[in-house]
Amino acid sequence: MQFEHLGVRPRIHPEAVVAPTAVISGDVTIGPGAQVLHGAVITAEGGAITLGENVIVMENALVRATSVNPVHIGDHVLVGPMASISGATIADEVFLATGTRVFNGAKIGVRSEVRINAVVHLRTVLPPETLVPIGWVAVGDPVQILSPERHDEIQAAQRELDFPGYVFGLDRETPDLMVQLTERYGRGLARHAHDVQIG
């Protein structure tokens, strides 16, 4: 299904293939030879999304742009099943395995691999040809690649990256943080009420 969102329709190259159960919404450009499989959701929430040539977005993956962080996915990238990309830049020839999570402002260098259930955190920069092992967390710039049992180090690095401030414009110490966050985010998402299905 395709939707016009905020007055912008997806642009899909005639040589791309989009499954009928995939959702493509808003300012999305999909390049030649790209494949978007069943259940994938590619949604431009006020920022553009560009998929290059021969990109494969597998089943139930999510690609989401924001007004602050557009998404660019280079050529010959594979986005695995149930992977999630939010507001990130992915260079050419990158492999994002099943269940990977890539957060706002992250940049993944050419020919990098992010393996099953690994995380590339907010504003993290992976140099070219970086490998993030299964279940590990990449965080920061310069990047630290940490095993999940190093939770204290991951948490310390995350705190400096300021997820609520960077993504939602809210101070982490706000007493009613989740009240403000959900109300603000909900107002933004409510703009989908005016979407128009076009295909």
Rank of each mutant, 00 (worst) to 15 (best):
I145P: 02
Q144V: 08
H121F: 08
R123N: 09
P148D: 13
G140A: 10
V143T: 10
I145M: 07
P133L: 11
L122N: 07
Q155F: 13
R123L: 06
D141A: 09
W136V: 03
P142R: 13
V125M: 01
L146T: 13
Q144R: 15
P148K: 15
V125P: 00
V139Y: 04
D141N: 14
V137D: 04
V137L: 02
P127M: 09
L126G: 02
L126D: 02
Q155K: 14
P133S: 14
D152I: 03
S147I: 10
H121G: 06
R123I: 02
G135Q: 09
E153Y: 10
T124A: 01
P133V: 11
L122Y: 08
H121K: 09
V125H: 05
Q144A: 12
L126P: 00
V139W: 02
Q144G: 02
E149Y: 09
L126T: 11
V143H: 01
R150A: 07
G140K: 08
T124K: 04
P127E: 07
P148S: 13
I154Q: 08
V143N: 01
V137P: 01
P127W: 01
L122M: 11
D152T: 15
G135D: 11
G135Y: 02
R123H: 05
P127L: 10
W136C: 05
T130F: 03
L146Q: 10
V137S: 05
I154S: 04
S147E: 13
V125R: 04
H121Y: 13
Q155S: 14
A138R: 06
T124M: 05
P142I: 08
E129S: 11
I145H: 07
V139H: 01
V132H: 03
Q144P: 00
V125E: 03
A138K: 05
L146H: 12
R150D: 10
L146I: 14
D152E: 15
I145Q: 07
P128F: 03
V132G: 00
L122C: 06
E129R: 11
P148M: 12
V137C: 07
D141K: 08
V132P: 01
V132K: 04
V143P: 01
D152Y: 08
H121Q: 09
H121A: 10
R150Y: 07
A138S: 08
V132E: 05
V120Q: 04
H151M: 12
R150I: 08
G140V: 09
V120D: 00
G135I: 10
E129C: 02
P148H: 13
L122I: 15
P128Y: 12
S147Q: 15
R150V: 09
R123V: 01
H121C: 06
T130R: 06
Q155L: 15
P128G: 12
P148C: 13
E153D: 15
V132L: 03
L146C: 09
Q144S: 13
I134Y: 09
V132I: 09
E153R: 14
D152N: 13
L122D: 08
